[in-house]
């Protein structure tokens, strides 16, 4: 009677996926890192201090994992949510009160808060270990963009439940755009931009309008933020993440004393 596990590992299907024996010896532990798509993000070997939690805090990895959690729970939440003024609030209520998978919303929201915190902690660690110094300067810049996108992801998602908390937080936050110099209708320099005595920058043409798609937070804003939150910003994050990880490898792996 042959061992079942062995039968599977000897089968053509298994061997077509994993082209080497189990990673139990040194050679195959190296091969597994090189032949697996998901693992090839890593180097094959690393200095011991590079994986010490007291040095790395694991916060970059935690942030990436939270991004994955947000993606998975976010896609599932999209099944239950319609981004219209008519339905948005009720759909969230249903998630809370009716659907058995309603806890997805909690995981998604707390994961989002946690992601903001872990991005900050990751950057804190990178600063305190001086890891932004040459040759990693540009990856720090990419990281700052990722920080911005994380905050924007969280900010756009904040509106979607369409309750008082959401709408007024976005109103307060986006009111700032009204005061953008030259481009906000209550910003300094706005009066200087006139064409034949007519203001070019009004509340229907300024930076805030571009953000909200309307004069006030409303139907258009919900749609705009939904698309930004579910499609545009995640795509941007995915691209920058790829660059960020690739640069970590190309810039010499995780930092350490020379």
């Amino acid at each position: 009677m042959p061992d079942l596990g062995e039968t599977i590992r000897e089968s053509q299907i298994w061997k077509s996926i994993f082209r080497h024996p189990m990673p139990v010896d040194r050679r195959n532990r190296i091969v597994v890192m090189l032949t697996n798509f998901f693992l090839h993000l890593h180097p094959v070997s690393i200095k011991k201090q590079g994986i010490a939690l007291s040095y790395t805090w694991c916060m970059g990895g935690v942030t990436f994992f939270l991004f994955l959690v947000e993606t998975v729970t976010g896609v599932l939440l999209m099944f239950y949510y319609r981004p219209t003024v008519e339905w948005a609030y009720t759909d969230i209520q249903m998630l809370r009160d009716v659907h058995s998978l309603g806890i997805l919303r909690e995981i998604h929201r707390w994961g989002a808060h946690a992601m903001v915190i872990t991005v900050w902690l990751h950057m804190y660690r990178v600063f305190l270990t001086g890891s932004y110094k040459p040759p990693r300067e540009f990856n720090w810049v990419v990281g700052v963009f990722l920080l911005l996108l994380t905050l924007l992801l969280s900010f756009t998602g904040y509106l979607l439940p369409w309750d008082q908390l959401a709408v007024w937080a976005i109103t307060v936050g986006s009111n700032m755009a009204r005061a953008t110099p030259f481009l906000g209708h209550e910003g300094p320099g706005q009066q200087l931009l006139t064409l034949g005595g007519v203001d070019m920058i009004t509340n229907a043409s300024d930076a805030r309008f571009a953000l909200l798609g309307a004069r006030e937070v409303g139907e258009e804003t919900l749609n705009r933020f939904y698309i930004l939150h579910c499609i545009a910003i995640p795509l941007g994050v995915a691209l920058l993440l790829a660059i960020h990880f690739w640069r970590v490898r190309k810039d010499g792996g995780i930092s350490g004393p020379l």
Binding site: P23, V44, Q49
Partner: peptide, 12 residues
């Protein structure tokens, strides 16, 4: 950080 300078394999 210099003390743990030896290289180890990423797997496992």
């Amino acid at each position: 950080e210099k003390l743990d300078d030896e290289k180890i394999l990423v797997w496992p």
